[in-house]
Design a protein around this nucleic acid. Sequence first.
DNA 1: GCGAAAGTACGATCGATGTCAAACTTTGAT
DNA 2: ATCAAAGTTTGACATCGATCGTACTTTCGC
Lengths: 105, 105
Amino acid sequence: MGRTPPHPEVSQFDLQQVLEALVDPVRRSIVAQLDASGVDIPCGGFDIPVSKSTATHHFNVLREAGLIRQYYVGTSRMNSLRRAEMDEVFPGLLDALTRQPVRKT
Amino acid sequence: MGRTPPHPEVSQFDLQQVLEALVDPVRRSIVAQLDASGVDIPCGGFDIPVSKSTATHHFNVLREAGLIRQYYVGTSRMNSLRRAEMDEVFPGLLDALTRQPVRKT
DNA sequence: GCGAAAGTACGATCGATGTCAAACTTTGAT
DNA sequence: ATCAAAGTTTGACATCGATCGTACTTTCGC
């Protein structure tokens, strides 16, 4: 593994892509948990009701949209919320979403 | 026709449903056009690249999510953005979205 | 009344996406 | 060296939703 996956630059953030990422409740929950905790969290450290392979998919979608940054620490893939960068490009968006609890299903 | 379709109350607005409505570019374009014009617009008065039956579907989704209010005037169905009510329940959300241009696709 | 205009209803289609299981890879610890 | 832990990859599957065409309904104007 060891390789750092590609991350989009701020200038490439796309609203459509960000919305498609955030419309999924599992992914919105991941973002909410990152936002609430304030620290980076490994993939396995989230409370989400899906299998590991599905989780991998969700993290990929979030990373490709620019919502999280991922880096390895040993065998763990850490996830960091790109809060400031998102706020810069889409001011108010994450605020509006994290202010609300994520729906159950 | 003549009958007024059902509209959700503010207390029933659901973030998941609102996001699912706004993730579609056509629907986001409808909301943006309503927001920009400031006046009510009949279904046929929007600049959207879909057939009439598809348009009907999109307006239904927006209405059921609480984003627009619909009422008949003759054979025309008028559409009104429920801006204040949305802002009340999801402050900042419409601001964040209408601030951005709707992507082409 | 009749025709046109504005939508709606109803299927049907087709692509996208969320999901999982199984096999694999990489890293750290013993 | 071996094993376990943490993710990834791949392929399959199922569901959902955007789309359209056609037929239908309602209302307005002549």
